[in-house]
Design a protein around this nucleic acid. Sequence first.
DNA 1: AGGTCGGCCTGGCAGC
DNA 2: TGCTGCCAGGCCGACC
Length: 294
Amino acid sequence: MPEVETIRRQLEPDLVGRTIEAVEVLDSYFSKPELPHVFEKAVEGREIVDVGRRGKYLILELADGNSVVIHLRMTGSLILVDPDGVENPGDARIYEADQGVKHLKARFSLDDGGELRFTDPRRFGRGFVADDKALEVYFDSRLGVEPLSPEFTVESMAAMTANRTGPLKSFLLNQKGVVGVGNIYADEALFRARIHPLTTGASLKPEHHKALRDGVVEALERGLDLGGASIDDYRDAKGEAGSMQNEFLVHRREGEDCPECGETIVRIVVGGRSTYFCPNCQVKLRKPPRRRRA
DNA sequence: AGGTCGGCCTGGCAGC
DNA sequence: TGCTGCCAGGCCGACC
């Protein structure tokens, strides 16, 4: 989510008020199950009136009441190429890596001469067009509370986790409770909350509800402050990498020292996903963790 | 209904 | 060198 929000914030000032003159879908996977030309015709000639986000979905709201909804999944990128093209330092890097050509899946030509490009080496990203009503139905059936909204309270966390018998890590990844938490931020949030990833929601006590809520918020806000995490492919709308990956507390740090106690961070698989945690700080039992060194 | 697991994709890399 | 096979992970659908 920090990655999508970073892109949204960059795109908003440049895209609002722009008209999309032409759309070219170069890979039918992008618009699947809709045919490319149907997607193109639904978007061409429309003005963008807002750039929003819901969970990890980016939303280009059009003047005709429809919205272009784009999900980047893991490896999708949205790059805004300025009207003057080469002046943008990010552009040069994209051409250098041959990404803009090799993995270009869709392009949106703007009325100011600029272009929004969707690239995705793994072809998981998707885009579709929907009206307000359809979008509401779509999101309501899939997505829960926004983590950075006032609705994400300790009470809501308590209610969401109350009857959960599966691992909290899986709950965080499931977008029906709280949205926007992917594998990186789930690990970071659980560490901040000092909760073991295999802990069940039903076993949480009131202090844990607060710790987990705060952990999620803090992990996501840290990611936002750092412009997202660029482990592999992620780049922002200007083609620049984020720096969250340099400040992971536990994620992808197997064998390294816990930043809190110095214990060795371990990796396990939860729900088929790599999960990193500190076995000393994030205990399953109530036994207080021993402190080794700060 | 909640939980679990495999599939979708491709590039990168370890291991032989 | 070149091949195989595994891993990365957001979401969905099938199944228990």
